[in-house]
């Protein structure tokens, strides 16, 4: 269920566009839904469609076209490691396998306690900071050596159950 607080955030996005172009805010609205609810469910899509007065299928097309929308629930922390060539040259693939080993999961999977989801990703646009990892869509972590990855996993695990 999309709360009034979320709808207030939607309103700030639709205000950027002409009154007859509310659909332009769909990318932002779905990103807000994901931040608040963890993923974009069919119910959320339906509510966003109603809010923006656009066809449900047009919302679903957006959810499924863009890589960052979670169409299924993910762990509390979604880790996206870039492995594109500039990052690969600076050990990003090793960073990804280090995390697989450390978390005991393969890329694309979620830990059994629901704390971490690990994914490979395409260029995050921070190539000079490689290896880079995006956490929960909004936090870019730079120069992620194995040591730093370990530290971050420990710190996030400690926060895993809390708010």
């Amino acid at each position: 269920m999309i709360s009034d607080a979320i709808k207030a955030r939607f309103a700030r996005e639709t205000a950027k566009y002409p009154a007859d172009q509310r659909q332009s805010a769909v990318m932002a609205c779905l990103a807000i839904v994901q931040q608040e609810l963890g993923h974009v469910s069919s119910d959320s899509e339906r509510e966003v469609a109603a809010y923006l007065d656009m066809p449900l299928m047009a919302v679903h097309e957006v959810t499924t076209f863009y890589n960052m929308y979670n169409q299924e629930p993910v762990g509390r922390f979604k880790l996206n490691v870039c492995t594109n060539l500039p990052c690969q040259l600076r050990d990003a693939s090793k960073a990804l396998s280090h995390l697989e080993h450390r978390l005991g999961i393969k890329m694309g999977e979620t830990t059994s306690d629901g704390v971490f989801t690990l994914q490979q990703s395409e260029c995050l646009g921070a190539c000079a900071d490689a290896p880079v990892m995006l956490v929960n869509d909004r936090h870019m972590c730079s120069f992620m050596s194995n040591d730093k990855l370990d530290r971050l996993v420990v710190e996030l695990t400690a926060l895993g159950g809390g708010a």
Binding site: A31, A58, E61, F65, Y66
Partner: peptide
């Protein structure tokens, strides 16, 4: 405005489509 993970939107007309709230 922001994208959400689609390299193709760096192409200017794809970007316009995205800004209109489409694929």
């Amino acid at each position: 405005a922001h994208g959400f993970g689609a390299y193709i939107c760096g192409e200017e007309t794809a970007l316009l489509e995205s800004l209109e709230g489409k694929k």
